[in-house]
């Protein structure tokens, strides 16, 4: 696998929040699942969100490209307010890539067509150019030899690497990862995490929901701990894992590492 080109726009932009979430609320029927989450994500930052299932971490992530609508508070991404306005939603989705737990590759399209579809349709990139750029991205995730296969012919790890390339083809400013390795067999987790590490090193802004504590330790700039729809703690990984004061965080980490 080759290194990704640098995605960072210089160190000076590092302190400018790319995403601002203020007092986010979300209800599913009578269940109050996100209870006033406020945080900011900076350009080039790698944030890892952890927490027990049902803590609202995936729901929060999915609200950042409005796969779920928040019903209180506001989210601003790269200066665009994410609200019910379809133009705003489409504008944000062009800037925010997403990688899913279950890969969600388009099952009727080849690997190459999976990667080129969005650039061709949304950015109106000519097919030749889209193919060329897609092949470069597939090389970076180590999948160029499989460009003409269909998703069902690939292993889970391979599918997920293609899904990452597919998102990158839209040249997003931020990448969301929703438990990208949770559906993978253990021997395939590493190949996906390696791609994500390369991506992080290239300066891509990443928000990752995961149970991979090793990845959080090694790559994250900040670890965010969700519990019962709230952020209970956020800190750099050394601090977070080094001396977790909170009893519930200690209990969670104890369960995860065993």
């Amino acid at each position: 696998m080759t290194e990704f080109a640098s995605f960072s726009n210089g160190a000076e932009s590092k302190r400018k929040p790319l995403i601002t979430a203020r007092n986010i609320q979300k209800h599913f029927g009578s269940a109050h699942v996100i209870k006033g989450v406020s945080t900011e994500f900076y350009q080039g930052e790698v944030a890892v969100i952890i927490g027990a299932s049902g803590s609202g971490k995936s729901t929060f992530l999915r609200m950042l490209n409005r796969l779920e609508a928040h019903d209180g508070g506001n989210i601003v991404i790269d200066g665009i307010e994410l609200d019910a306005n379809l133009k705003h939603i489409d504008a944000v989705r062009r800037e925010v890539g997403m990688v899913f737990q279950s890969f969600n590759l388009f099952s009727h399209l080849t690997v190459l067509d999976n990667v080129t579809l969005a650039p061709r349709r949304v950015r109106k990139t000519p097919r030749e150019q889209a193919n060329r750029e897609a092949m470069e991205l597939l090389a970076k995730v180590g999948m160029s030899a499989h460009a003409h296969k269909y998703p069902h012919q690939l292993s889970g790890g391979q599918q997920q690497r293609v899904a990452i390339a597919r998102s990158l083809a839209m040249q997003p400013k931020v990448m969301l990862f929703d438990e990208p390795t949770s559906a993978l067999d253990p021997e395939m987790i590493k190949e996906v995490l390696d791609v994500m590490k390369d991506l992080a090193r290239s300066g891509m802004t990443m928000i990752v929901v995961t149970h991979e504590m090793g990845f959080a330790r090694e790559v994250a700039d900040r670890v965010i701990f969700f519990e019962q729809g709230k952020i209970l703690e956020e800190a750099p990984p050394e601090e977070f894992f080094g001396n977790a004061q909170n009893e519930r965080i200690r209990a969670f980490l104890g369960q995860i590492t065993n």
């Binding site: 890539g97 997403m98 899913f100 969600n104 969005a118 949304v122 839209m170």
Partner: peptide, 10 residues
Amino acid sequence: QVEAARSLGL
């Protein structure tokens, strides 16, 4: 499949 397409901006 729909979520993936929509999240790509289609």
